[in-house]
Design a protein around this nucleic acid. Sequence first.
DNA 1: GCCAACGTTGGC
DNA 2: GCCAACGTTGGC
Length: 138
Amino acid sequence: MNYWLIKSEPGTYSIDDLKKEKKTMWNGVRNYTARNNMRDMKKGDICLFYHSVTDPSIVGLSKVVKESYQDPTTEETAWVVVDVAFEEKFKTPISLNEVKLHPKLENMQLLKQSRLSVQKVTKEEYDFILKLAKELAK
DNA sequence: GCCAACGTTGGC
DNA sequence: GCCAACGTTGGC
């Protein structure tokens, strides 16, 4: 079981869109590091859902329901997609500023490699983030 | 294989 | 809208 963080600009595809659709094909990734991460995703893995640009924050959870396969939206064989399903929307999003406040999260790729659109998250970071989400929801 | 030029991402 | 970070491209 692994944990990930996937990014999307809410104007393009938001957690609400995923909630409505229940499930989506995560396409459009055109970066090799991100692609490699998607290849490593296993069914049942959890992906933190991150809104970039307009409201930088972790807004909820999604789950991998189909492992990587060739991206049907391009002829290029280099790219893959996964299918993810809606899992949860946090009552209160965890803003990027909030993430920066906690020493336990200071090594997150989100802070170190801010441009990477599919990132690995450690179990420790994931557990801490869930705890944080619950506290903020109060 | 190096590196300059260029394009894109994303925080602010 | 600006700009830093960083990935990609292409000339040499």
